[in-house]
Design a protein around this nucleic acid. Structure first.
Lengths: 172, 172
DNA sequence: CTTTTATGTTGACAACGACAACATTATGCC
DNA sequence: GGCATAATGTTGTCGTTGTCAACATAAAAG
């Protein structure tokens, strides 16, 4: 189920995921998914949680704060549909505890990296700022219409590097 | 139509907007909306464009860069549904030129404010960073599950003030 | 006054999420 | 082995939705 839904997510985005099409791709009847997920939102939540887990896994392999930021932006650009789903306002994290847990795990990682990079700063504020920066940057880069007109032709990873450097310089 | 859709947006969010319910609230038949919008996405695009226009209007009344950032975050918190819609990944801005224009107008405003606040910086990078910061901050604050656990009890506007100040200090 | 245009209506269709009832398979226990 | 229980899959159905087509009406233009 999750594999089929993942394909759909890549092909058509969040709105293109229907339980019936998932079932069709999995080669089962139109109601089989209900034996694994109580409703459509729960399937989406599981997909989103997968995303948080994968991003956490990748983040663990980045050593410093700047690398973690690059990691974040790179993930968003590689898997735009998954990224959008992870922060979809329609998905109420409070009703899907395993999704909430997966998200918090990622943010704990980020907080630790910030703590190590800027021990003198208020960790709360600095973490908030760091996350805001990489998350907002990802969103802007994904919004291709805006990025093309607003930000010339530079490749995305160059931009993300410059922005994150501007930030880490400001911290020190 | 737009008024009825706006109500629905506030009450149930983007996913809760159906053309038929909009028609119902407007007191017309289920297909009347198609005389004004070719499809559902076009109605959403018009709603989103309204949001960009309103935010641009407000931003014009803020004088300095920091105030503009506060303005952005405040708007997102006041009208979460509208804000989410404005940046909904499902809405292809390239297929709705008036939406794209409304969005670009807002970003031009931001760029001018950045140019004035930090004349020595690379305007492109600084604007990108500034937008990323306020946008990401808005998203994090809207994601209540994350904000409650990650950021203690501080009121949102206090957080946004501290974060924007951290950023403007870093610029100078 | 007539023609065109804007707007609204009715009816239909396929797809969807969700529910209920039933069938099948697997698993654990004796 | 054999049987009970849970897990999983299926068929059928309902209400809702987006969208299309055909038709009706009102407003505006000539």
């Amino acid at each position: 189920m999750l594999a089929a839904a993942g394909e759909l997510l890549v092909e058509k985005g969040e709105a293109g995921i229907s339980l019936r099409e998932v079932a069709r791709r999995a080669g089962v009847s139109h109601n089989a998914p209900y034996r694994h997920f109580p409703d459509r939102d729960s399937l989406l939540a599981a997909l989103a949680a997968e995303g948080f887990d994968e991003l956490s896994e990748r983040s663990r392999q980045a050593d410093e704060l700047a690398g973690l930021g690059q990691c974040y932006v790179a993930f968003a650009l590689e898997q735009p549909g998954r990224f959008a789903l992870m922060f979809s306002p329609g998905l109420d994290k409070s009703r899907h505890p395993e999704l909430q847990a997966a998200a918090l795990q990622l943010f704990d990682l980020l907080r630790e990296a910030v703590r190590q990079a800027a021990p003198k700063r208020d960790v709360q504020i600095a973490t908030l700022a760091a996350w805001s920066l990489v998350h907002g940057l990802s969103q802007l880069l994904l919004d291709r219409q805006l990025s093309e007109t607003l930000l010339g032709e530079q490749p995305a990873d160059a931009l993300s590097e410059q922005v994150t450097r501007l930030f880490t310089e400001g911290l020190g």
